[in-house]
Amino acid sequence: MTDVTQQTGTYEARMGDYFALMKPRVMQLVVFTALVGLLVAPVPVHPFIGFVGILCIAVGAGASGALNMWWDADIDAVMTRTRSRPIPSGRVQPGEALGIGLALSGFSVILLGLATNLLAAGLLAFTIFFYAVIYSMWLKRSTPQNIVIGGAAGAFPPMVGWAVATGGIAPESILMFALIFMWTPPHFWALALFVKSDYGNADVPMLTETHGRGVTRNHILGYTIALVPVALGIAFTSIGGPVYLAVALLLNGWFLKGAVDIWRRDDTDSEADSHATEKRVFKISLYYLFGHFGALLFEAVLRTNGLGGW
């Protein structure tokens, strides 16, 4: 019997299957926000060191994604949205995902420490730990507040980017963290409102399942209101300015209106139009985050040309 026929029982992964383990779509957001955190910092960084810093943050995020997929393979297999991921679909073995996740975690943290500074490396290590252990292994399956606290993992990248440039933590980097942290709950709950059955089937205690969809609608509105002062507050720091303020006012008005629309509806309205408002607000939430960070980047470009700021 040849080597080939012996091994056809187990699928051998393509490179793309390993790449899919790293959640490339989440990585886009991580790279963008980390890059903004790096570029708006008041300390210039050598372009190549900046590039390596962002690469390490992206690889670290990918590593935590791989660890998350390894741990959550059982629930991923149940949910429609995640059923085709590399592990439940059989394209990657769980042990491979664990190995890749651990190896890339170590690699990204060590290289970031050598290329930039220990604070940035420490923050990246903590981010990976927070996402893989605190969120994935602990909070996700135990509390409906999972995404509220777990959202911190996705909020760290701009802080790490800032630390790459400055070697420190500042009110500006904390506010960028707070912006993503406060944005995560309404963003994910809007998603949970139109993929409700999935989380229930997987026994993941999303707020929609544990407290009902009405409570979730209230929470979306509450968190969106709490998000507004954070988003507007950044405008009055050293990284903000009139352009950012204008963009923030527009986006917050838009997002807030969407949250009010969700709050005013009930399940009957929602089912009647196939969750059109919930889907719209989910989309708005994406524009919201990219818009704010894009405006911060624009302010930084203006400042380097002697414009922008107050």
């Binding site: 080939v4 051998e12 393509r14 490179m15 390993y18």
Partner: peptide, 14 residues
């Protein structure tokens, strides 16, 4: 002989 070789090549090149 097998599609498996393509996957291995893809992975090795990667």
């Amino acid at each position: 002989e097998h599609e498996l070789h393509k996957r291995r090549l893809d992975r090795n090149v990667g």
